[in-house]
Design a protein around this nucleic acid. Sequence first.
RNA 1: GGCGCCGUAGCCAAGUGGUCUAAGGCGGUGGAUUGCAAAUCCAUUAUUCCCCGGUUCGAAUCCGGGCGGCGCCUCCA
Length: 518
Amino acid sequence: MTLRIYNTLSRKKEDFQTIKPGKVGIYLCGPTVYKHAHIGHMVGPVIIDTIARYLKYNGYEVKFVNNITDIDDKLIHRAAELNTTVEKLAAEMTQDYFDNLEIMGVDTITEFPKATDYIEEMQNMIQALIENGHAYPLEGDVYFSAEADKNYGCLSGRKIEEMIAGTRVEANDKKKNPADFALWKKSRPGEPAWDSPWGPGRPGWHIECSTMSRKLLGDSFDIHGGGLDLMFPHHENERAQSECCTGKKYVRYWVHNGLMQASDAPGKVGGQHDRHGDVVADQEAQEANKLAGSKGAASVKELFAIHPAEIVRLFLLSTHYRSPIAFSDENIQEAAKGIEGFYRFFETFERITGISFYDLPSSEDRDQSVSLEGTPSEYFQQLSELQQRFLEAMDDDFNTGGAIGNLFELRSTLNALIHSHNLDGEGKEDQALVEALKTGACLLKELSNLLGVFRKPCKKDQEADDGLANQLMELVLEIRKEARESKNWDIADKIREGLAACQITVEDRPEGSLWRRG
RNA sequence: GGCGCCGUAGCCAAGUGGUCUAAGGCGGUGGAUUGCAAAUCCAUUAUUCCCCGGUUCGAAUCCGGGCGGCGCCUCCA
């Protein structure tokens, strides 16, 4: 089975083939660092991180670039609002972004270029575009001439004439053609500015990506990611600039992720776009729903205070990356209930084998995958089949939702082995079966790690280790144990119910009682 | 007005021409286990894939029409 990937450019799935054998260059449009990231900003990184993991697993060497836009109008406005400098604000928000990526388990990004570090290269590219007739300076600005690119519109599927006919392009502009866009913007007094052949100014929005990707990945590279909302105008313009400058095909596969929707956002979308609805209110509602505006979108950190990041990650991956995903506490909680079964399994596994699931060896290479032969043969056959189905799903345009389904089935298979041979009891003396269980657990680790989850103990589990709570629980469970031994069920049940009210679940097992939060 | 996406069980969600009498999760139901629970296991929960036509030996999957939801066209991950 070969890897297939949906390409926005062709609007269909294509066989994946890299430009350089064995190597993959990926560019993902990163954030403008003017405010704290919200969960929607994590979708792209999580998805591309998962793709990068999968490509590495398949033997590719991956170079993954994620830019930081640290100069932009929004940044200038926000810094003024907060009475700080653009540099300070950008530095702070960049750190916030890095923190969030770490918490989300995104660690495959190899470079984080900052726009302000590439001003000179951008100017060179702009100059080249002017020289070959694709751009023109005008009163301190420089514009790209959309008409000069005969392919303009090929990525987003639109035509210049139609866009102009749409009349929402402002006509009063001094630009030659309304579809033209700024490569360089003249600065006003007090704004951050760099010297240039066209006067002091700052780069336009799109040019940084063209410049930095070229510098770090070359004139042509394999995968370009970003949110669907960036397809136009950002990616279209980026593509046009780059191709007009280099004369080469810019990107092989354009990967656009669907946008997250706040399903419990204030102001439901009316669906009366072209009727007599209140257009302004409607737009606001859409904005809120998309999570892109400041309205109603909690920062990632606020979110992680409520939900473990790993669960959020799995929630993001439970639906296909190109589909929109409805984000709400309720939906995450529902997903969490299913995912927690994995943590129960890890506990059981450790009880049986004395080994932490997280310490198991697991292959990061498809060719060195865990060997799935042995007895019980039926069990191993199931493992093998689940592995195959998991990989087939991933091969099919990174169908993480389908892959996760197989992960759940794999868990059931392992639990069934434990159950049918009583491995969590006397059966654990059977070394061969315990080994079989370990093999299955290694497979689970190998596959789940591809999705970037279950790599280290979840924060929630670690919290349960705090000293005072442990001491208190030890005492309470000791008292309860005595009550149970004298068959004083009323007391025993009262304690358990009381703990349940404190969000503590007690589990009575033959060898003693366990407890956990939630 | 232009371009595009989507509509699968109570809910979330895979599957996009035959293996589909449609994965998986949540929820529900019955059973095993348990003092009772919890956890786990087993069974069960859509004869059907928004509606209507068509293509085909065969469609949830392709085509046409309708209805409903949404995105982009303007800063946006």
